[in-house]
């Protein structure tokens, strides 16, 4: 090994704030976000991109940060669950819906679940159908089984999109 860590600096915009961070070659985005930038909402459960606990948005698209190399994210924008709330701590509609429906138990997977729902609700093809959003969440596992409450939260968001859509058309 050349030097203990052989670090390289990358530029990430995390939740709207530009960060210069030194990372190892081969370091995953999940590790960088958790261990170097202390984003506690990003959690690693499987390490192979299946469980969804490490879900973040990269330039607005859903990814599993545990299988994304940080170096390949250089210059890109990352949104974590914490970044979904407003700068004043105001909850996003997705977050508010999860709180209102008590869509959590142990809550380890929940922040990442809100990121996936957020992305689904940004997709005009998806956001007007609870069933489509449900399919969107197939890659976010919740072992406690809070799925019924999560679907209730989703349904509320979908209904509000449908009624807003109707208003626009009208």
């Amino acid at each position: 090994m050349t030097g203990p860590e052989n670090l390289r600096t990358v530029n990430l915009t995390v939740d709207g704030i530009e960060r210069l961070v030194d990372v190892r070659p081969g370091e995953t985005l999940a590790e960088t976000l958790r261990e170097r930038l202390r984003c506690t909402s990003v959690r690693q459960t499987c390490g192979i991109g299946i469980c969804g606990s490490c879900t973040v948005l990269l330039d607005g698209k859903v990814i599993s940060s545990c299988i994304k190399l940080t170096e390949l994210s250089d210059g890109h924008a990352v949104t974590t669950a914490e970044g979904l709330s407003g700068p004043d701590g105001q909850l996003s509609p997705v977050q508010q819906a999860f709180v209102s429906h008590a869509a959590y138990q142990c809550s380890f997977c929940i922040p990442a679940m809100t990121v996936a729902v957020h992305a689904a609700m940004a997709d005009p093809e998806v956001r007007t159908s609870t069933e489509r959003v449900r399919e969107y969440l197939a890659g976010n596992l919740c072992r406690c089984g809070s799925y019924p409450q999560i679907l209730q939260a989703v349904d509320e968001l979908v209904q509000s999109h449908i009624s807003r859509g109707l208003e626009t058309e009208g």
Binding site: R38, C39, T40, S41, V42, R43, T80, A81, E82, L84, S85, L91, Q95, F98, V99, A102, A103, Y104, S107, F108, I110, P111, T114
Partner: peptide
């Protein structure tokens, strides 16, 4: 009754403390 968990917001936004952190 069904009072909300006191840390409901932390649970959802991801700042709930775990030993991991």
């Amino acid at each position: 009754t069904d009072p909300e968990a006191r840390d409901a917001i932390q649970r959802v936004i991801g700042t709930l403390p775990f030993v991991l952190d």
